[in-house]
């Protein structure tokens, strides 16, 4: 997993509520057995018309936002399915950070497994960053994970909270599985004890 420390990039505004996983990556693109290559289909049904042509009004099709690295979104981003294809598609497109007032639980988890930082902020901070993001190619934000600070185009700053463990893993690009396997002895002894207590499992 790629480390996440400091990110500077254009933020795209997506003020819509309940941007769900079917919008982020429609199911016809889940038939892959790979993790890569999903970026061209990110937001597919909002981004392309029936003939596969780009819809010019869609934010990521506008020249200013084609290289966006951050999305500022409406409430409850990522609701819906458990598909990790959603963060894979965001990442493949180049999005490393999503900012909203709230995220769906599984999506939120999935982001951290892929080096994407989801930031939860109060409404007024999201509103302010949404205004910043409306400024086209001037909508450049800097997200500093170490300091837990977002800096806007005017130099204004917004602080954010993050679970310390998740921060540590993102900053160091740590692989969960490797870390858990280090606790192999604890898992072994749990299994021994569970085999006595609940042998039917």
């Amino acid at each position: 997993m790629e480390k996440f420390d400091k990110l500077t990039g254009v933020a795209a505004p997506m003020p819509l509520y309940n941007i769900d996983t079917d919008m982020i990556i429609p199911k016809q693109f889940l038939k892959t057995i790979k993790r890569s290559g999903l970026g061209v289909n990110l937001f597919d049904e909002m981004r392309y018309d029936d003939q596969g042509n780009e819809i010019p009004d869609f934010v990521l099709n506008k020249p200013a936002y084609r290289d966006a690295k951050i999305i500022v979104a409406g409430d409850n981003f990522g609701c819906g399915s458990s598909r990790e294809h959603a963060p894979w598609a965001l990442l493949d497109f180049g999005i490393r950070c999503v900012i909203s007032t709230s995220f769906a639980d599984i999506f939120y988890n999935n982001c951290f497994k892929n080096g994407i930082l989801p930031i939860v902020l109060p409404q007024e901070d999201v509103d302010k960053l949404m205004d910043d993001a409306e400024r086209g190619s001037n909508a450049v934000l800097t997200v500093d994970l170490e300091e837990q600070v977002i800096t806007g185009p005017d130099g204004g700053t917004v602080r954010f909270d993050i679970d310390p463990w998740r921060k540590h893993c993102l900053l160091n690009g740590l692989d969960d599985i490797g870390l858990t396997l280090e606790k192999g002895a604890a898992i072994d002894s749990f299994e021994d004890q569970a085999a006595q207590a609940r042998p039917w499992v």
Binding site: E84, I106, N109, N110, N114, I177
Partner: peptide
């Protein structure tokens, strides 16, 4: 429900 990275985590651990 869990994501695919977690599927891998559960398979392995």
């Amino acid at each position: 429900g869990i994501g695919t990275s977690e599927v891998e985590h559960v398979l392995a651990t």
